[in-house]
Protein backbone atom coordinates (compact mmCIF):
# COMPACT_ATOMS: atom_id res chain seq x y z
CA UNK A 1 0.00 0.00 0.00
CA UNK A 2 2.71 2.39 0.97
CA UNK A 3 4.44 1.85 -2.33
CA UNK A 4 1.32 2.44 -4.34
CA UNK A 5 0.85 5.67 -2.51
CA UNK A 6 4.36 6.88 -2.56
CA UNK A 7 4.02 8.99 -5.67
CA UNK A 8 0.87 10.56 -4.44
CA UNK A 9 2.35 11.27 -1.07
CA UNK A 10 5.32 12.86 -2.72
CA UNK A 11 3.00 14.81 -4.91
CA UNK A 12 3.81 18.13 -3.39
CA UNK A 13 7.27 18.15 -4.87
CA UNK A 14 7.32 16.19 -8.04
CA UNK A 15 5.12 16.29 -11.04
CA UNK A 16 3.09 13.22 -11.80
CA UNK A 17 2.96 11.81 -15.31
CA UNK A 18 0.19 13.24 -17.38
CA UNK A 19 -1.51 10.80 -19.70
CA UNK A 20 -2.87 13.01 -22.41
CA UNK A 21 -0.71 12.75 -25.49
CA UNK A 22 -0.18 16.04 -27.20
CA UNK A 23 -1.40 16.62 -30.70
CA UNK A 24 -0.95 19.74 -32.83
CA UNK A 25 -3.58 22.11 -31.51
CA UNK A 26 -3.37 20.76 -28.01
CA UNK A 27 0.35 21.35 -27.99
CA UNK A 28 -0.28 24.99 -28.83
CA UNK A 29 -2.91 25.22 -26.16
CA UNK A 30 -0.48 23.82 -23.61
CA UNK A 31 2.12 26.48 -24.30
CA UNK A 32 -0.41 29.24 -24.51
CA UNK A 33 -1.94 28.28 -21.20
CA UNK A 34 1.29 28.40 -19.26
CA UNK A 35 2.64 31.48 -21.02
CA UNK A 36 1.11 34.16 -18.78
CA UNK A 37 2.30 32.37 -15.67
CA UNK A 38 5.78 31.91 -17.11
CA UNK A 39 6.00 35.58 -18.06
CA UNK A 40 5.08 36.79 -14.60
CA UNK A 41 7.47 34.46 -12.90
CA UNK A 42 10.28 35.08 -15.37
CA UNK A 43 10.01 38.86 -15.11
CA UNK A 44 10.53 38.64 -11.37
CA UNK A 45 12.99 35.76 -11.35
CA UNK A 46 15.28 35.90 -14.37
CA UNK A 47 15.82 39.62 -14.69
CA UNK A 48 16.31 40.24 -10.96
CA UNK A 49 18.80 37.42 -10.69
CA UNK A 50 20.74 38.71 -13.69
CA UNK A 51 20.62 42.22 -12.28
CA UNK A 52 21.82 40.95 -8.92
CA UNK A 53 24.77 39.29 -10.57
CA UNK A 54 25.75 42.64 -12.01
CA UNK A 55 25.36 44.36 -8.65
CA UNK A 56 27.27 41.68 -6.79
CA UNK A 57 30.24 41.79 -9.14
CA UNK A 58 30.54 45.56 -9.21
CA UNK A 59 31.15 48.27 -6.70
CA UNK A 60 27.80 49.87 -5.94
CA UNK A 61 28.01 52.21 -3.01
CA UNK A 62 25.17 54.68 -2.99
CA UNK A 63 27.10 57.48 -1.38
CA UNK A 64 29.39 57.36 -4.40
CA UNK A 65 26.84 57.18 -7.19
CA UNK A 66 29.00 57.49 -10.28
CA UNK A 67 31.72 54.99 -9.66
CA UNK A 68 30.94 51.36 -10.47
CA UNK A 69 34.08 49.42 -11.40
CA UNK A 70 33.92 45.68 -11.97
CA UNK A 71 35.19 43.82 -8.93
CA UNK A 72 34.62 40.19 -9.73
CA UNK A 73 34.08 38.09 -6.66
CA UNK A 74 35.53 40.64 -4.27
CA UNK A 75 32.18 41.50 -2.69
CA UNK A 76 31.38 37.84 -2.14
CA UNK A 77 34.81 37.17 -0.71
CA UNK A 78 34.64 40.17 1.61
CA UNK A 79 31.23 39.17 2.89
CA UNK A 80 32.23 35.54 3.41
CA UNK A 81 35.44 36.53 5.13
CA UNK A 82 33.91 38.99 7.52
CA UNK A 83 33.55 38.27 11.19
CA UNK A 84 30.02 39.72 11.10
CA UNK A 85 28.88 37.33 8.43
CA UNK A 86 30.15 34.43 10.48
CA UNK A 87 28.30 35.72 13.53
CA UNK A 88 25.08 36.32 11.60
CA UNK A 89 25.46 32.90 9.98
CA UNK A 90 25.84 31.21 13.33
CA UNK A 91 22.88 33.11 14.77
CA UNK A 92 20.79 32.14 11.75
CA UNK A 93 21.74 28.48 12.03
CA UNK A 94 20.88 28.41 15.73
CA UNK A 95 17.62 30.21 15.08
CA UNK A 96 16.70 27.94 12.18
CA UNK A 97 17.50 24.78 14.09
CA UNK A 98 15.41 26.00 17.03
CA UNK A 99 12.37 26.90 14.96
CA UNK A 100 12.51 23.72 12.90
CA UNK A 101 12.66 21.59 16.02
CA UNK A 102 10.01 23.58 17.89
CA UNK A 103 7.57 23.87 15.00
CA UNK A 104 7.80 20.16 14.18
CA UNK A 105 7.40 19.19 17.82
CA UNK A 106 4.49 21.59 18.15
CA UNK A 107 2.88 20.24 15.00
CA UNK A 108 3.14 16.59 16.01
CA UNK A 109 2.05 16.94 19.63
CA UNK A 110 -0.67 19.51 19.09
CA UNK A 111 -2.13 17.66 16.12
CA UNK A 112 -2.51 14.59 18.35
CA UNK A 113 -4.39 16.68 20.85
CA UNK A 114 -6.57 18.19 18.13
CA UNK A 115 -7.35 14.71 16.83
CA UNK A 116 -8.99 13.80 20.14
CA UNK A 117 -12.75 13.67 20.51
CA UNK A 118 -14.46 16.24 22.71
CA UNK A 119 -15.53 19.82 22.74
CA UNK A 120 -12.27 21.43 23.79
CA UNK A 121 -10.36 19.75 20.99
CA UNK A 122 -13.13 20.69 18.57
CA UNK A 123 -12.91 24.29 19.69
CA UNK A 124 -9.13 24.27 19.35
CA UNK A 125 -9.36 22.85 15.84
CA UNK A 126 -11.06 26.10 14.87
CA UNK A 127 -9.08 28.40 17.13
CA UNK A 128 -5.75 27.19 15.84
CA UNK A 129 -6.48 28.78 12.50
CA UNK A 130 -6.29 32.25 14.00
CA UNK A 131 -2.52 32.65 14.38
CA UNK A 132 -2.14 31.26 10.89
CA UNK A 133 -4.54 33.91 9.56
CA UNK A 134 -2.76 36.79 11.27
CA UNK A 135 -0.05 38.46 9.17
CA UNK A 136 3.39 37.72 10.53
CA UNK A 137 4.28 41.33 11.24
CA UNK A 138 1.12 41.65 13.33
CA UNK A 139 2.16 38.55 15.24
CA UNK A 140 5.51 40.21 15.83
CA UNK A 141 3.88 43.38 17.10
CA UNK A 142 1.63 41.44 19.45
CA UNK A 143 4.52 39.49 20.93
CA UNK A 144 6.71 42.55 21.16
CA UNK A 145 4.16 44.07 23.50
CA UNK A 146 3.67 40.92 25.46
CA UNK A 147 7.42 40.74 26.08
CA UNK A 148 7.77 44.45 26.81
CA UNK A 149 10.23 44.84 29.67
CA UNK A 150 8.42 47.61 31.51
CA UNK A 151 4.74 47.09 30.95
CA UNK A 152 4.55 43.68 29.32
CA UNK A 153 1.78 41.36 30.37
CA UNK A 154 4.10 38.34 30.38
CA UNK A 155 6.37 39.87 32.99
CA UNK A 156 3.29 40.69 35.07
CA UNK A 157 2.00 37.14 34.72
CA UNK A 158 5.30 35.48 35.58
CA UNK A 159 5.84 37.73 38.59
CA UNK A 160 2.33 37.12 39.89
CA UNK A 161 2.86 33.37 39.52
CA UNK A 162 6.11 33.76 41.42
CA UNK A 163 8.16 32.33 38.59
CA UNK A 164 10.47 35.33 38.35
CA UNK A 165 11.36 37.76 41.17
CA UNK A 166 11.21 40.96 39.10
CA UNK A 167 10.57 42.15 35.56
CA UNK A 168 12.90 40.70 32.96
CA UNK A 169 14.31 42.73 30.10
CA UNK A 170 13.53 40.18 27.38
CA UNK A 171 14.84 42.20 24.49
CA UNK A 172 17.82 43.54 26.42
CA UNK A 173 19.27 40.09 27.00
CA UNK A 174 21.28 38.43 24.22
CA UNK A 175 20.01 34.97 25.14
CA UNK A 176 16.37 35.80 25.78
CA UNK A 177 15.92 38.04 22.74
CA UNK A 178 16.39 35.22 20.19
CA UNK A 179 14.08 33.11 22.34
CA UNK A 180 11.30 35.69 21.98
CA UNK A 181 11.70 35.43 18.21
CA UNK A 182 11.43 31.65 18.35
CA UNK A 183 8.30 31.82 20.49
CA UNK A 184 6.63 34.33 18.18
CA UNK A 185 7.64 32.21 15.19
CA UNK A 186 6.20 29.05 16.71
CA UNK A 187 2.99 30.84 17.60
CA UNK A 188 2.63 32.06 14.04
CA UNK A 189 3.77 28.95 12.13
CA UNK A 190 3.22 26.09 14.60
CA UNK A 191 -0.54 26.08 13.92
CA UNK A 192 -0.01 25.49 10.20
CA UNK A 193 2.22 22.56 11.04
CA UNK A 194 -0.42 21.24 13.43
CA UNK A 195 -3.15 21.58 10.82
CA UNK A 196 -1.03 19.78 8.24
CA UNK A 197 -0.19 16.97 10.66
CA UNK A 198 -3.81 16.75 11.68
CA UNK A 199 -4.86 16.37 8.05
CA UNK A 200 -2.40 13.51 7.77
CA UNK A 201 -3.47 11.89 11.03
CA UNK A 202 -7.08 11.90 9.94
CA UNK A 203 -6.08 9.99 6.85
CA UNK A 204 -4.58 7.11 8.84
CA UNK A 205 -7.04 4.20 8.63
CA UNK A 206 -8.53 3.50 12.05
CA UNK A 207 -8.29 -0.25 11.67
CA UNK A 208 -4.52 -0.04 11.66
CA UNK A 209 -4.59 1.20 15.24
CA UNK A 210 -7.18 -1.34 16.19
CA UNK A 211 -5.09 -4.22 14.95
CA UNK A 212 -2.10 -2.72 16.77
CA UNK A 213 -4.18 -2.64 19.91
CA UNK A 214 -5.06 -6.25 19.53
CA UNK A 215 -1.38 -7.03 19.22
CA UNK A 216 -0.93 -5.34 22.58
CA UNK A 217 0.95 -2.36 21.15
CA UNK A 218 1.51 0.53 23.52
CA UNK A 219 0.67 4.12 22.59
CA UNK A 220 4.30 4.76 21.82
CA UNK A 221 4.58 1.71 19.60
CA UNK A 222 1.44 2.73 17.71
CA UNK A 223 2.96 6.15 17.21
CA UNK A 224 6.33 4.79 16.22
CA UNK A 225 5.16 2.11 13.82
CA UNK A 226 1.87 3.42 12.46
CA UNK A 227 1.56 7.19 12.90
CA UNK A 228 5.12 8.19 12.23
CA UNK A 229 5.44 6.46 8.85
CA UNK A 230 2.28 8.24 7.76
CA UNK A 231 3.49 11.56 9.12
CA UNK A 232 6.94 11.30 7.63
CA UNK A 233 6.22 12.93 4.24
CA UNK A 234 4.34 15.75 5.93
CA UNK A 235 7.16 16.22 8.38
CA UNK A 236 9.67 16.33 5.56
CA UNK A 237 7.67 19.00 3.79
CA UNK A 238 7.46 20.93 7.04
CA UNK A 239 11.18 20.45 7.46
CA UNK A 240 11.80 22.13 4.11
CA UNK A 241 9.28 24.90 4.68
CA UNK A 242 10.60 25.66 8.14
CA UNK A 243 14.26 25.47 7.21
CA UNK A 244 13.82 27.85 4.33
CA UNK A 245 11.39 29.97 6.35
CA UNK A 246 13.74 30.16 9.31
CA UNK A 247 16.66 30.98 7.09
CA UNK A 248 15.01 33.96 5.46
CA UNK A 249 13.23 35.30 8.55
CA UNK A 250 13.10 39.04 8.32
CA UNK A 251 9.71 40.45 9.31
CA UNK A 252 9.87 39.29 12.91
CA UNK A 253 13.35 40.71 13.39
CA UNK A 254 12.35 44.01 11.83
CA UNK A 255 9.35 44.34 14.09
CA UNK A 256 10.56 42.81 17.35
CA UNK A 257 14.28 43.28 17.93
CA UNK A 258 15.86 45.27 15.11
CA UNK A 259 18.72 42.76 15.23
CA UNK A 260 19.64 43.50 18.85
CA UNK A 261 20.66 43.58 21.54
CA UNK A 262 24.10 44.00 20.04
CA UNK A 263 23.84 41.62 17.13
CA UNK A 264 22.17 38.81 19.06
CA UNK A 265 19.23 38.56 16.65
CA UNK A 266 20.96 39.83 13.56
CA UNK A 267 19.95 37.05 11.18
CA UNK A 268 21.36 36.86 7.66
CA UNK A 269 18.29 38.44 6.04
CA UNK A 270 18.48 41.28 8.48
CA UNK A 271 22.19 41.59 7.80
CA UNK A 272 21.44 41.84 4.05
CA UNK A 273 18.78 44.44 4.71
CA UNK A 274 21.19 46.48 6.81
CA UNK A 275 23.92 46.18 4.19
CA UNK A 276 21.53 47.54 1.56
CA UNK A 277 19.45 50.10 3.41
CA UNK A 278 21.75 51.18 6.21
CA UNK A 279 25.24 50.73 4.81
CA UNK A 280 24.07 51.57 1.28
CA UNK A 281 26.39 48.98 -0.20
CA UNK A 282 24.27 47.40 -2.91
CA UNK A 283 27.18 45.34 -4.21
CA UNK A 284 27.78 43.67 -0.89
CA UNK A 285 24.06 43.46 -0.22
CA UNK A 286 23.55 41.62 -3.49
CA UNK A 287 26.53 39.35 -2.81
CA UNK A 288 25.07 38.51 0.58
CA UNK A 289 21.65 37.95 -0.96
CA UNK A 290 23.23 35.47 -3.35
CA UNK A 291 24.83 33.59 -0.52
CA UNK A 292 21.48 33.36 1.26
CA UNK A 293 19.74 32.25 -1.93
CA UNK A 294 22.43 29.65 -2.61
CA UNK A 295 22.13 28.21 0.87
CA UNK A 296 18.33 27.98 0.77
CA UNK A 297 18.37 26.50 -2.71
CA UNK A 298 21.05 24.03 -1.69
CA UNK A 299 19.17 23.00 1.42
CA UNK A 300 15.95 22.55 -0.53
CA UNK A 301 17.69 20.39 -3.09
CA UNK A 302 19.21 18.22 -0.39
CA UNK A 303 15.80 17.77 1.15
CA UNK A 304 14.12 16.99 -2.14
CA UNK A 305 16.83 14.43 -2.69
CA UNK A 306 16.12 12.95 0.71
CA UNK A 307 12.46 12.88 -0.11
CA UNK A 308 13.10 10.96 -3.31
CA UNK A 309 15.21 8.44 -1.46
CA UNK A 310 12.51 8.23 1.12
CA UNK A 311 10.02 7.47 -1.62
CA UNK A 312 12.24 4.72 -2.98
CA UNK A 313 12.61 2.96 0.31
CA UNK A 314 9.21 3.40 1.85
Amino acid sequence: MARANSRQRLGPLILGRATARPRGRLQWYAYLSILPALCFVALFAVYPVAFSVRLATHRYVLTDPHNHPFEGLRNVAEVLGSYYFRRAGLTTLTFTASVVASVLAFGVTVSHYLNRPGRLAGFLRVAILLPWAIPVVMAGIIWKWIFNGNYGVLNALLVSLGLIPSYVSWFGNPILAPLTLVIAHVWKWGPLAAIMCLATLQAVPRDLYESAHIDGGSGWAAFRYITLPFLRPTLLILLILETVGGFVTFDLVYVMTGGGPGDATSLLSWFAYAEIFRFLDLGKGAALAFIIAAVTLGLSLVYVRLLRLEALYS
Binding site: L15, L38, V41, P48, S52, L282, G285, L297, S300
Partner: peptide, 22 residues
Protein backbone atom coordinates in the same frame (compact mmCIF):
# COMPACT_ATOMS: atom_id res chain seq x y z
CA UNK B 1 7.26 23.44 -13.99
CA UNK B 2 10.52 23.09 -12.14
CA UNK B 3 11.44 26.63 -13.14
CA UNK B 4 8.21 28.04 -11.80
CA UNK B 5 8.54 26.18 -8.52
CA UNK B 6 12.21 26.95 -8.02
CA UNK B 7 11.64 30.65 -8.53
CA UNK B 8 9.74 30.56 -5.27
CA UNK B 9 12.85 29.39 -3.45
CA UNK B 10 14.69 32.65 -4.08
CA UNK B 11 14.38 34.56 -0.81
CA UNK B 12 12.49 37.81 -1.12
CA UNK B 13 15.31 39.89 0.30
CA UNK B 14 17.65 38.54 -2.37
CA UNK B 15 15.88 40.25 -5.23
CA UNK B 16 14.73 43.32 -3.34
CA UNK B 17 16.91 45.80 -5.22
CA UNK B 18 16.23 44.52 -8.76
CA UNK B 19 12.51 44.33 -8.12
CA UNK B 20 12.63 47.87 -6.84
CA UNK B 21 14.43 48.93 -10.00
CA UNK B 22 11.93 47.14 -12.27
Amino acid sequence: YAFILTSRLIPAISVAIPVFVI
